[in-house]
């Protein structure tokens, strides 16, 4: 789906969401009940760099400053972080982390945050946007990837065919929306044939402050160990037995 189609489907009651020439999305949409939802995002698959982070983070901070409980939608179609020497030189890691922190702050102030993955996403830009929300949903056709299979084949020194074969039995490394859903990163994959505004309302109802992604990954068998290990650590730190923590 194109961004226009997505926006039309999300906000049949209207919106003032704009995409800058550089691909930064900001604005507000009208929810079913007439209330506002703030929107930020990255369009056209452009890479996210320091300059892109600033208007998006500013929009989020504006929502928090205004108060209330206006939710925030993060639309994501980016090839990843901007790979350039100058970006690294001025501290891109701080910029990307800043955007993530702004979204997490909003969540703590009672603004539900939902990420919608409708195009590409990878690596650092993924962490700064979609993965910093309370709940991430995806549209079929979206192509999130931490790294593409050819690059992964280079790093792991395994042939691509072998990796494709492995991907069938373990979703832990291979790109794609389904695999990320299995690991718990993507809470739900939307049905584009149904009205998007209704699905957005459902996603907002399901979004909570508590991070349940590791539990989701365990239930869906895509991340077998993470939730258990985190619980074991908490038990060890607080002096409970592991068995009590597992119960």
């Amino acid at each position: 789906m194109t961004l226009d189609e997505v926006l039309k489907g999300l906000f049949p009651g209207g919106h003032d969401v704009k995409t800058s020439k550089d691909g930064w999305i900001t604005g507000h949409g009208k929810r079913r009940d007439g209330g506002p939802i703030a929107v930020i995002g990255v369009a056209n698959g452009v890479p996210l760099g320091a300059a892109g982070v600033l208007p998006l983070a500013e929009h989020v901070l504006g929502v928090v400053e205004k108060g209330g409980d206006t939710p925030i939608l993060v639309l994501v179609d980016t090839e990843g972080q901007l790979m350039a020497r100058r970006e690294e030189m001025i501290g891109l890691n701080e910029y990307l982390a800043h955007l993530a922190k702004c979204l997490l702050l909003a969540s703590q102030h009672g603004h539900r945050t939902v990420g919608l993955e409708y195009g590409r996403a990878s690596a650092g830009a993924f962490l700064a946007t979609a993965l910093a929300t309370d709940s991430l949903v995806g549209l079929p056709g979206a192509e999130p990837a931490v790294m593409d299979l050819p690059s992964m084949a280079r790093v792991t020194k395994l042939p691509e065919d072998k990796l494709k074969e492995l991907a069938k039995t373990t979703p832990v490394f291979a790109p794609g929306l389904d695999h990320l859903a299995q690991t718990g990163a993507v809470a739900e994959i939307w049905d584009p044939a149904k009205p998007l505004d209704g699905q957005l309302e459902a996603a907002l109802r399901n979004a909570g402050q508590k991070d349940v992604r590791d539990q989701l990954g365990a239930e869906r068998k895509g991340r077998p160990a993470a939730a258990k290990v985190a619980r074991q650590v908490i038990a060890a730190a607080t002096g409970q037995t592991h068995d009590a923590a597992a119960a």
Binding site: A132, V172, A226
Partner: peptide
């Protein structure tokens, strides 16, 4: 160096969970 590519999805998500947990602890 970042995310372990052999466990890329789980690793990326672990970073996201770490970042969230850092913020929650700081708060």
């Amino acid at each position: 160096g970042g995310v372990r590519l052999q466990e890329a999805n789980a690793g990326e998500l672990a970073v996201a969970e770490v970042m969230r947990a850092v913020v929650e602890a700081r708060s």
